[in-house]
Amino acid sequence: MTVNAEQTTISVAPEDLMREVEGLQAGGYRLVQIGCTDIGGAYEVNYSFDRDYQYRNLRLTLGPDTEIPSISGIYWGAFVYENEMHDLFGIPVVGINIDFKGTFIKTAEKYPFSVTRRGGDQCRNA
């Protein structure tokens, strides 16, 4: 199977994020997605970029309530993912070009993917 195109992941410190992203933008990469993962008490944030099907990830590891800068000044379309990050995970992102201030995705439970959320099963039906 040839599904496995190259996927590289580089860990970056939050203060280096902007520089790295600018470098990728200058290198002709497009922003594919920003996604967060709960790794037990902390977040792992993946900034994924692609050029000619070469996949590169910048990976941040953050504690809860750590502010991160918005990359929407570099990639205009990043606001979608950054608002999503804020609304689902409760990660404060500073300086988004179109900041919905928590109204992009409204959920019954505030920050449903937050590492500080109560318990696992909060189904209102069960």
Binding site: G35, T37, G77, F79, Y81, E84
Partner: peptide
């Protein structure tokens, strides 16, 4: 984590 095409097409 599922990133669907329409989400990526909202900025455009």
């Amino acid at each position: 984590r599922i990133r669907t095409p329409t989400l990526a097409n909202i900025p455009i």
